[in-house]
Design a protein around this nucleic acid. Structure first.
Lengths: 231, 231
DNA sequence: CGTAGCCTTGAAGGTGATCAATGTTTGTGG
DNA sequence: CCACAAACATTGATCACCTTCAAGGCTACG
């Protein structure tokens, strides 16, 4: 409890809670616990019963939809301020998580029990509206992704990188704030790893990007943007 | 106004309004008007200022995201009971529609002014929760679509057809309740028309499907399902 | 020090895109 | 009611892009 209260100022800075009173916030966080996860550790697993939802505090989580073959599809990258699994709370029939949430690098989340959602979150218009906004933003990403389906892979990769770059709070360096493997980029775009590697290796050689420790740094942003959008 | 009231029982059967009282519903529909659209007529156009949102009453609308080249991407097929443009009402900064809504066949919608949303809809928890559910359902479709990205086109087409079939209220005939061109199927999947045609022509010859007047009838559902899912 | 996860490279092959030409249906206005 | 235009469907030929398979190397971590 003490730990959670220490996070309150941090939480208040998030779009989800921005402008909320202390009392209000405390209510919303009833029974909440802080969970620290290691790299690749699971926060939620598709198919397991629903007990809580989460707010990302630190690090990142990939939301993964498993497919019948081995290859996963990454549906969303959740970074600090994002809610995970909040929407499904509204569905009384949903008994198991539809997706898996996996930590990317050491990460921290605030777990809020389902009961608190049903009692407090579900009765608060402002909260529901903000969840709405979050959902809407994610849907837009999915739609853009869909719209870029036909573009050459190089453009799709640069779109993804620039999108992720925009999550950066510190904008002085062009470094993507999530440890990202080529495999994950491939999973996020629904293509083969090798294809991603072939393109990014070229960029590497041309000095457009640099990868250290799974952190991708974009050195020549203008070059990347050159590939860009045209969705 | 009279016209709108006549639609009330119909509206009450929709998941969005199910269980609402007459008074409640009347409030939510303040200033609403019924709009009849012809085939291919625009309900909303991307880039134009936002004045209202809609509930689909009859027919269908395709939600289209324009791309910089000519080719459109269909993001969603809205059928009776669906809301169009409701989510964006919550965004005070959004001044123009992000997508285009185009009638597929003669269609009817209930237009509700933005003011009513801001005054009534935005303050009603139950309504917000239901909008949430709708959004969530659409997001799931987008996610499934993304997950089926790598499957052969034949499987993706059959997925789409079966999904649309599930919207059918009358389930005695296997007929998709929306007039659907091959071009639209291609746009919904983000592929070329010719590719869709090549596959569906085969199905036609094999007697698996039949197309009359842009209504696709699935004759051998089991055959289609055979191609199916395996997302 | 061995395993697991990630990255890399090459060769071969297929799926769907593109381009071009033509047929068919639908709709509109004289 | 006909003529013409617009939207839709079709077919073939060619080709680019990405996938798949296979093999090997690198790094980190228990």
């Amino acid at each position: 409890m003490d730990l959670v209260e220490k996070k309150m100022p941090e939480l208040k800075a998030m779009p989800l809670f921005n402008g909320f009173s202390d009392g209000n916030l405390k209510e919303l966080l009833a029974g909440a616990t802080i969970k620290n996860l290691k790299h690749r550790e699971l926060l939620y697993q598709a198919g397991l019963p629903i007990e809580s939802f989460s707010i990302v505090l630190q690090g990142a989580f990939k939301l993964v939809k498993p497919t019948f073959r081995g290859d996963d599809i990454i549906v969303y990258f959740a970074t600090p301020g994002d809610a995970i699994g909040a929407v499904i709370m509204n569905k009384p029939h949903a008994q198991v998580y539809p997706i898996t949430a996996k930590a990317m690098g050491p990460s921290q989340s605030l777990c809020i029990p389902r009961g608190t959602y049903l009692k407090i979150w579900a009765e608060n218009v402002e909260v529901q509206k903000r969840i709405n906004s979050m959902l809407f933003a994610r849907m837009n990403l999915l739609q853009e992704d869909k719209a870029s389906h036909k573009l050459p892979l190089s453009q799709r990769i640069s779109n993804l990188l620039v999108n992720l770059l925009e999550r950066n709070d510190v904008d002085d360096v062009q470094k993507i704030p999530i440890p990202l493997t080529r495999q994950e980029i491939a999973d996020a775009l629904g293509v083969a790893v090798e294809s991603v590697i072939r393109i990014m290796s070229q960029w590497d050689q041309q000095g457009i990007i640099r990868t250290h420790d799974q952190r991708i740094e974009i050195i020549k942003l203008d070059q990347i943007i050159h590939y860009l959008k045209q969705i």
